[in-house]
Computed example of a mutant assay.
Amino acid sequence: MAEGAMNFEFKMPKELAGQFSEKNMKMARQKAVEAAGMVWADETKEIVMEDDHIDTSLFINSIGYVTNVSGKKDGPKATEADVVYEMVEENEQTTLKIGSSVPYAPVLEKKYNVMARGLDRAQDRMNRVGDQQIKRILGI
């Protein structure tokens, strides 16, 4: 399994603390993490296609969520079983693991480091979309 994890933290300004229900804070946090994860997956898929050394559509289409991008070698279609997407809530923290669970994913990640490169390249956009989700959900 090739997967990644990142810390995504936001702090409410003191003047806003206590203005939002725990339910809304949790929803905002989950939506922010979910949006950031999709950006990370998208950027990783782009890197895989740009590098042009991983030629199966199954791997590309299994990173983070199922897509339907054609590769040089169109093999089996990616399914939810091929995707790593695990969101866990613990206390006031939301953790999302994303990646691919196709059998050869660990070998490709070790060789090409695409998840880490995707994270590096997507970091700024991940923060922006996460912030947008928080503002949208909380109405600020």
Rank of each mutant, 00 (worst) to 15 (best):
A2I: 01
S62E: 04
E46Y: 04
F20R: 12
K72D: 13
M12N: 02
V33Q: 00
M6D: 13
H53P: 03
G75H: 10
N127H: 15
Q93D: 14
G18W: 01
A28H: 02
M12R: 05
Y65Q: 02
L58E: 10
K110V: 03
E109I: 03
Y85C: 10
A116S: 14
A35F: 00
N127F: 13
L119P: 13
A5M: 15
L119R: 14
D131V: 06
M27E: 14
V48I: 15
D82C: 05
Y104V: 12
N61Q: 03
V107F: 09
I47N: 01
P76N: 09
E22L: 12
S62C: 06
N127K: 15
G18A: 01
L58I: 12
W40M: 02
P106D: 02
M87G: 12
L58Y: 11
K110Y: 08
K135G: 11
T44P: 10
R128S: 14
R29L: 15
L138S: 07
K135F: 04
G64T: 02
I137Y: 11
A2Y: 07
K26T: 05
M25C: 11
D42G: 05
D131I: 05
T67G: 11
E22I: 12
L96R: 00
M126R: 01
K31E: 12
K45R: 14
A81K: 15
V102Y: 06
A17T: 11
F20A: 08
Y85I: 05
D51F: 09
V114Y: 12
T95Q: 08
D131E: 15
M87A: 15
S57F: 00
R121Y: 06
A28P: 00
G4R: 07
E43L: 04
M49I: 10
P76E: 12
V66Y: 02
D51P: 11
I134N: 03
S70W: 10
S57D: 11
P106F: 00
V33K: 00
Q93M: 11
I137P: 09
V107T: 15
Y104C: 15
E92M: 05
I140M: 10
I47A: 01
A78N: 02
A35E: 06
D52L: 13
T94L: 09
K23D: 08
Q132H: 07
G139S: 08
L96D: 09
G4T: 12
M87D: 15
A2W: 04
F8E: 01
V33R: 00
V83N: 05
R128C: 05
V66L: 04
M126A: 12
F8A: 00
P76F: 02
A122F: 00
